[in-house]
């Protein structure tokens, strides 16, 4: 459709924070791209759960995965379960329009670290991203 829709850049440079978005809504992807690149994160995006699974299974390890739930082909929950089974699930935030408590619980059970409901406040999303990243950085330091 335009230059924004392309195969995501999955090269991770040392020291950089790379956030990978799986979301079928172009506008959400644009919003997150603007928001995250503004604060200095590297951002890449794909609109298909199945393709995202292949990329992540193929060795791409982003600092954080943000995924939608309702997507054609493979749902966000299914993506998380499959990544967990393959032992390649990065720290994840689920971004979804689902509002029910059971769905939030299901997301957390599938391996998500946090859950953000749409419509979302960009500042709140950014704060949650920073929280998940610092939590994971701290646990990596501990174990490392």
């Amino acid at each position: 459709m335009d230059s924004f829709r392309h195969t995501p850049d999955t090269k991770v440079q040392p020291g950089e924070v790379h956030i990978f978005l799986v979301e079928d809504g172009l506008i959400y992807a644009r919003i997150l791209s603007a928001l995250l690149t503004k604060v200095g994160y590297k951002f890449s995006w794909i609109d298909d759960g199945a393709k995202a699974f292949e990329i992540l299974k193929g060795g791409f390890t982003p600092s954080l995965l943000i995924t939608d739930v309702m997507m054609p082909g493979m749902s966000g929950f299914e993506l998380l379960v499959r990544l967990k089974t393959e032992k390649c699930l990065p720290p994840t935030i689920v971004l979804t329009a689902l509002q029910k408590e059971e769905e939030v619980l299901r997301g957390l059970e599938c391996g998500a670290e946090d859950f953000i409901k749409k419509p979302f406040s960009p500042s709140v999303l950014l704060a949650r991203i920073q929280l998940v990243l610092s939590r994971n950085a701290a646990s990596a330091t501990k174990s490392g």
């Binding site: 919003i31 419509p119 979302f120 960009p122």
Partner: peptide
């Protein structure tokens, strides 16, 4: 309107 639907907070 579409973006109003997608966002909350200060941006909305």
């Amino acid at each position: 309107l579409h973006q109003i639907r997608l966002l909350s907070g200060q941006e909305r």
